[in-house]
Design a protein around this nucleic acid. Structure first.
Length: 834
RNA sequence: GCCCGGGUGGCGGAAUGGCAUACGCGGAGCACUCAAAAUGCUCUGCCCGCGAGGGCGUGCGGGUUCGAGUCCCGCCCCGGGCACCA
């Protein structure tokens, strides 16, 4: 008996796919000026299947194997269902980790990054992923970042990229500024160091201009609900009002944002954030100075805790409440954030938990202005703070009204008095994109003493990253040391000027790469509009949930901005998103410190790529975390071996050729295996086409192979039987192909002499999906009592008669009275007895 | 605290309101073998019973239904996200 040798089979097919460039697709159908180049049979029904581009560092890990196993299965399935599939690959090559690694190993980041890219490419090829390699690129190549700079300039022209001084988050370890999104929980996302505040000139993208659209247009996306929720929370739109409180002593107006103008009558004090520029003007006592200094030097993590006690200092000033003329005291307190709203709040301790805590700590009056409905009441001290709705009290002419009804009226009244207006606030901040680091895309701007910020003209792009020897971070960009490069002339006045030395956040590179894939070799433009409009949007995007906010939000912002500028004909980049779960080992996340890291390479070398790919999809539902077990891998390897041996045996027994791909319609009276084959086609098609149920799809093929083994001896005895066996095994190869492309191709070729990817996906014959007889379930009072054979299409009466003929049922009925009989045609009979 | 997931055999997991535990792993046995591996076949939720058979079973407590892992109400536990955002 011959053995299944994955390495031979896999190399054989990989060579074919590389030599024949099997997975390349042409852009000809997309270009209006060259309609027919691709031939008449080129399908115009396209599908863009994309996995998030890898960050090349070291070698691929199990997470990559899972992502590409999922994407490749879909790409293959869609191709064979007649779609024109774009399935490209590239590398997110700029960025901090590569640079940090380079500093540690004293090797240029380009060198280590390109070594990693070579290794990624080699392994992706060894996995047999069906990539159109003609579109490959790395984001660090000048041919790519030239267009990153081009996009930056288009946004700059529209005021969507701008420079301003701001309190920014600074990581002392990486010595760079971070985006808001990269400083979660007060620590640097990359290295875990607590971030500190610094006042610096920085570049921003005006993503807040798109806040409403980024939020509203989430509704039309086929994305997991939790990802959309995360984006909604991140954008954080609140509807309310801006209300102006006047400080009479200083003659200054202080606007505040509130979502509850209906509680205005309950405002009993007023609070400014420590960073508020007016705090020291209102009171510059040593006590206030000390409080402000401490608050500013604290890490956001220390300060952000909801649990800690409220602190603050009275400012000895008052403001006037516009609705009732009351003078209320002003405080400075660190629970008010400068970044949100106006950096000042009206405090309503009766109806806000934070204000309530502060009022208790400082013994300030707590006034009830919204009465909780009866039943939720009790003593006033028990029912406050009350944040729900109810009848207004202590609110002058609004007393007795329901707060929601009076809401608009109060805002309108304020507007009429010039003391307020309707307002919307967002949690979302502008995207800080500049980095004081070497390994990134240079910002194509020149600083001219006379002209100010001057964009580098398009025909001078790319502004190439200069070669320097010392790229270690020093708190300013290492590029500043490249004097020859920095000192330049102004494109506008030709006077002396200096280049911008900051580089762009890596997330900028990955915010448009999916557009470049569409037209990757275009030297005249980032893309041809017709081509990109043909392929986009990405029909199926696949990646980890860790990008739920950052990357996915930035890419949506770029797409919308570029669409507004007339460069794209669509506004959402990713029509459908799939987020995969993690691969764990012994129940824990893989990490070097745990010592539980395993590499896909070990398994590919030992069992073959087909085994590794099938196994990772077979462990469980792909959106859930799954634990890798070596015993499980062995099981899948056994299954693939069984399929290969059976194919080998059946191929040896017959004379090749004729067998299958026509659905086997002329193969004689259908046997159980023949029906099973059609069942498997139906099951795999549904699991792949309607949901991402790869695990059950593979299980169906395993069942088919198990049945083929079960029936093979009896079938081999007759010509019709042998043909049906052959059909079953060839179909198993065809169905496993999206998951195990090498073995699928091999099995199919052995039995049919054809290439499986050139044949269409098989179709199940509905007539063969139901057997001639079925097992009728008989229940008494809903409990299973017997199963009896019944002819397909039996009438209700017939089913009932058959059920009553069962001895077991008769024993159960034993003298009891049947009060009701439920018959589900083709399925069951249930007798309800008393 | 709020918002999402999830809780099913020894384990990973299957089940349009209709046979709970497909498929795989692990375990037991048989065949082949001098033997082992490999391979093929059979069995494998728990309890009672020699057996036929019966009872119990999808985190807990209720409910709807002829019938609930699945739907509804109230909890518990695990994982993730958000969280002083006015």
């Amino acid at each position: 008996m011959r053995r299944y040798e994955p390495s031979e089979i896999e190399q054989k097919w990989q060579r074919v796919w590389a030599d024949e460039r099997t997975w390349e697709v042409s852009n000809a159908v997309a270009r209006r000026d060259a309609p027919d180049e691709a031939g008449d049979d080129a399908p115009s029904d396209k599908s863009y299947v994309l996995e998030m581009l890898p960050y090349p560092s070291g070698e691929p890990h199990m997470g990559h194997l899972k992502t590409y196993a999922i994407g490749d299965a879909l790409a293959h399935f869609r191709r064979r269902r007649g779609q024109r599939v774009l399935h490209p690959m590239g590398y997110d090559a700029f960025g901090l980790p590569a640079e940090n690694h380079a500093i540690k190993t004293n090797r240029h980041p380009r060198e280590s990054t390109e070594a990693a890219i070579d290794e990624f490419r080699r392994q992706f090829r060894s996995w047999g992923i069906s990539i159109d390699w003609s579109r490959e690129f790395g984001t660090h190549e000048p041919d790519y970042y030239r267009w990153t700079q081009w996009i930056f300039l288009r946004l700059f022209e529209r005021g969507l990229a701008y420079r301003r001084e701001a309190a920014v988050k600074w990581c002392p370890t990486d010595e760079t500024v971070l985006a808001n999104e990269q400083a979660k929980d007060g620590v640097c996302e990359r290295c875990g160091t607590p971030v500190v505040a610094r006042q610096l000139e920085q570049w921003f993208f005006r993503i807040t201009a798109y806040a409403d659209r980024l939020l509203d247009e989430l509704d039309g996306l086929d994305w997991p609900e939790h990802v959309r929720t995360m984006q909604r929370n991140w954008i954080g739109r609140s509807h309310g009002a801006e209300v102006v409180f006047r400080c009479e002593e200083l003659g200054t107006d202080y606007p505040v944002f509130t979502t509850r103008p209906d509680t205005l009558f309950g405002a009993t004090f007023f609070v400014l954030a420590p960073e508020h520029p007016d705090v020291l003007r209102l009171n510059d006592s040593p006590e206030v100075h000390a409080y402000v200094d401490r608050a500013i030097s604290e890490t956001p993590e220390e300060r952000g805790s909801e649990l800690r006690e409220k602190t603050g200092v009275p400012l000895g000033r008052t403001v006037t409440n516009p609705v009732n003329g009351e003078r209320i005291p002003m405080y400075v307190a660190d629970y008010v954030l400068m970044e949100y709203g106006t950096g000042a709040i009206m405090a309503v301790p009766g109806h806000d938990e934070r204000d309530f805590e502060f009022a208790q700590a400082f013994e300030l009056p707590i006034r009830e202005v919204i009465r909780a409905p009866a039943g939720e009441g009790g003593e006033i001290v028990d029912r406050l703070p009350y944040t729900g709705d109810g009848e207004m009290v202590n609110s002058g002419r609004f007393d007795g009204r329901h707060n929601r009804e009076a809401f608009e009226e109060i805002v309108e009244w304020l507007a009429g008095e010039g003391r307020g207006r309707r307002a919307v606030n967002f949690r979302l901040r502008d995207w800080l994109l500049s980095r004081q680091r070497y390994w990134g895309c240079p910002i194509p701007i020149v600083h001219c003493e006379r002209c100010g910020l001057v964009p580098v003209p398009d025909d001078q792009l790319p502004v190439e990253l200069p070669e320097i020897t010392d790229y270690a971070p020093k708190g300013r960009s290492p590029l500043a040391a490249a004097t020859d490069w920095v000192e330049t002339s102004c494109p506008r006045c030709d006077g002396p000027a200096r280049r911008e030395t900051d580089t762009m956040d890596t997330f900028v590179d990955s915010s448009w790469y999916f557009l470049r894939y569409c037209d990757a070799r275009n030297d005249d433009a980032p893309w041809d509009r017709d081509v990109v409009d043909f392929w986009m949007p990405v029909d199926q995007y696949i990646g980890g949930v860790e990008h739920a906010i950052l990357h996915l939000m930035y890419a949506r912002f770029f797409t919308k901005a570029l669409a507004d500028l007339g460069h794209l004909g669509f506004e959402e980049p990713f029509a459908s998103l799939f987020t995969q779960g993690m691969i764990t080992r012994a129940g824990a996340k893989m990490s070097k410190s745990r010592g539980n890291v395993i590499s896909p390479r070990e398994y590919v070398e030992r069992f073959g790529a087909d085994t590794a790919r099938c196994y990772i999809l077979y462990i469980g539902p792909p959106d859930q975390d799954a634990d890798w077990s070596d015993e499980g891998v062995g099981g899948i390897h056994r299954f693939l071996s069984r399929l290969w041996r059976l194919a080998d045996e059946v191929a040896a027994a017959g004379d090749g050729g004729e067998a299958s791909a026509d659905g086997g319609s002329h193969l004689g009276e259908p046997t159980a295996l023949f029906r099973k084959t059609h069942w498997a086609i139906d099951k795999v098609t549904a699991d792949l086409g309607e949901r991402f149920a790869f695990n059950t799809a593979i299980a169906a093929v395993i069942e088919l192979v198990n049945d083929a083994y079960r029936y093979r001896d009896e079938l081999a005895a007759t010509p019709d039987g042998a043909a049906q066996l052959r059909f079953a095994v060839a179909t198993a190869g065809s169905l496993i192909f999206p998951f195990a492309p090498h073995l699928g191709s091999e099995v199919y070729e052995l039995l049919t002499g054809r290439r499986v990817w050139e044949d269409p996906w098989p179709e199940a014959d509905p007539a063969l999906l139901s057997a001639e007889t079925f097992e009728l379930i008989v229940q008494v009072n809903g409990k299973l009592r017997d199963r009896v054979a019944a002819p397909a299409g039996a009438s209700s009466e017939e089913q009932e008669r058959l059920a009553l003929a069962s001895e077991k049922v008769v024993a159960q009925l034993d003298g009891a009275q049947i009060v009701k009989t439920v018959v589900v045609p083709g399925r069951l009979v249930n007798f309800v007895v008393r």
